[in-house]
């Protein structure tokens, strides 16, 4: 199996930064807030490797840094340190056309809220197809055919391809985001709380769809959720984040069955009540 994604010592900082910020966590400051310059460590010292076809979950309470990690992986967010390697290529500092090409081709993301990932005023097909145009597809008919294929593969009715996304329900909008993410056949699929805020039954069907995608492709998947039950259903391994740091990494069944860190124990015990 080949390593699709390798992340080394990744750090994202919101704020100016200072010499104390750059020290290893715990040297002079352990929390997410730097007391010297007031910067927030969105995440730091995050590292993992992910094979093609593998899925990694990230859990933690809101504000723990989960979305920050995803944003960095999607090259949405400049990093303060560390490296991101996609198929062995260092993409950490990708800029300009290289960054656009990676984002439109090798990466696919489903944001927590559809407004972040979609233009609600344009059609489902137009949203998905826009990524193919961004990587240079020129034939309208081919883009449309590919958009329709992905629209249907996320179990949306073909006749809704030309409907503006604004008219779609929450669950359908997440499906459009999935179609848009997958249309470029990415190496890495990033899901940020893809089902939170949806009705339980809608949530269940989206999770089924993600499971099917996992079985039918060898895309590497990183899924963020505050819900351990979602992670258990979708990912074999999990990182537990707190205050911008990974406090535990392990097999999902191990983190659920034998959580080591006090914070993981709290998450698991909260889950089961």
């Amino acid at each position: 199996m080949s390593v699709a994604l390798r992340v080394e010592d990744l750090a994202v900082r919101y704020g100016p930064g200072c010499p104390v910020c750059a020290e290893p966590a715990g040297t002079r400051s352990a929390g997410a807030l730097c007391e010297i310059c007031g910067s927030v460590h969105g995440c730091r010292e995050v590292g993992f490797a992910l094979d093609a076809g593998e899925a990694l979950g990230i859990v933690g309470e809101s504000g723990s840094g989960k979305s920050t990690v995803l944003a960095a992986l999607n090259l949405d967010q400049p990093v303060a340190g560390g490296r991101i390697l996609l198929d062995g290529h260092d993409v950490t500092a990708a800029a300009g056309s290289e960054r656009r090409r990676l984002r439109a081709g090798s990466l696919g993301i489903v944001y927590q809220t559809p407004q972040q990932g979609l233009d609600l005023a344009i059609t489902a097909g137009g949203n998905a197809g826009s990524r193919l145009l961004a990587v240079g597809w020129r034939s309208y008919d081919r883009v449309r055919a590919e958009a329709l294929a992905h629209h249907e593969s996320v179990e949306l009715a073909g006749e809704r391809l030309d409907t503006p996304v604004r008219a779609f329900s929450g669950g359908m909008r997440q499906r459009v985001q999935l179609a848009k993410a997958l249309i470029s056949r990415p190496r890495l699929l990033l899901l940020d709380e893809p089902t939170s805020g949806l009705d339980v039954s809608v949530q269940a069907r989206i999770l089924d769809l993600v499971r099917r995608i996992r079985r039918e492709s060898d895309v590497a998947l990183v899924i963020v959720s505050h819900d351990l039950a979602v992670i258990r259903m979708l990912a074999e391994r999990v990182l537990v984040m707190q205050a911008g740091r990974v406090v535990e990494a392990g097999l999902t069944d191990q983190v659920l069955g034998d959580p080591q860190h006090p914070y993981s124990q709290l998450l698991v015990s909260a889950q089961l009540t």
Binding site: G250, D253, Q254, Q260
Partner: peptide, 9 residues
């Protein structure tokens, strides 16, 4: 058994 399977560390 769970240690052997590594469900327990």
């Amino acid at each position: 058994l769970r240690c052997v399977y590594r469900t327990y560390r």
